[in-house]
């Protein structure tokens, strides 16, 4: 089974691919981008929740750090959720320029965020939760998105 770091890093890559295919379909027709947008939006939401409801909680319980890096990552999730929902509105309004303006912003924000997680937080989480790694990954995999 993959480690926490490997599992979540692979999920970032999966979300990046879905992001790219959403932009691809939006560049062809903004009207038809709804389906690929929905897949990207639900996948990224699932990723956020896997962290917020499973990994961050385990990490905080183990390290006692509740106001540290996980708080910052939650804050950035909020910023990204806001952009994702605005992109949904832009598709509904069939406003292509606005959609790509938002997607460009989200892309850079998302990549900065992923980089911090992959370089630092996941490495740290893997160190602290090494013994429980399989259990944490299983919990993330079987989690039901709310």
């Amino acid at each position: 089974m993959s480690t926490i770091k490997e599992y979540l890093t692979a999920d970032h890559a999966r979300c990046d691919d879905l992001f790219a295919s959403m932009e691809d379909s939006a560049s062809r027709s903004i009207k038809d981008a709804k389906a690929s947008y929905d897949i990207f939006a639900s996948s990224s939401e699932r990723h956020f929740q896997m962290e917020e409801k499973v990994m961050f909680l385990e990490f905080e319980a183990k390290t006692g750090m509740t106001q540290g890096p996980t708080a910052m990552m939650r804050q950035e999730h909020t910023q990204m959720r806001s952009l994702v929902s605005q992109m949904g509105e832009a598709i509904a309004d069939e406003n292509k320029d606005r959609f790509f303006g938002l997607s460009e912003t989200l892309m850079i924000l998302m990549q900065q965020h992923n980089m911090k997680e992959e370089q630092m937080l996941y490495t740290m989480a893997q160190q602290h939760l090494n013994a429980d790694s399989d259990r944490v990954v299983e919990m993330m995999e079987s989690m039901i998105v709310e």
Partner: peptide, 9 residues
């Protein structure tokens, strides 16, 4: 591990 970089502040 240094985590200050994770802070927006």
């Amino acid at each position: 591990m240094e985590l200050n970089g994770l802070s927006i502040d």
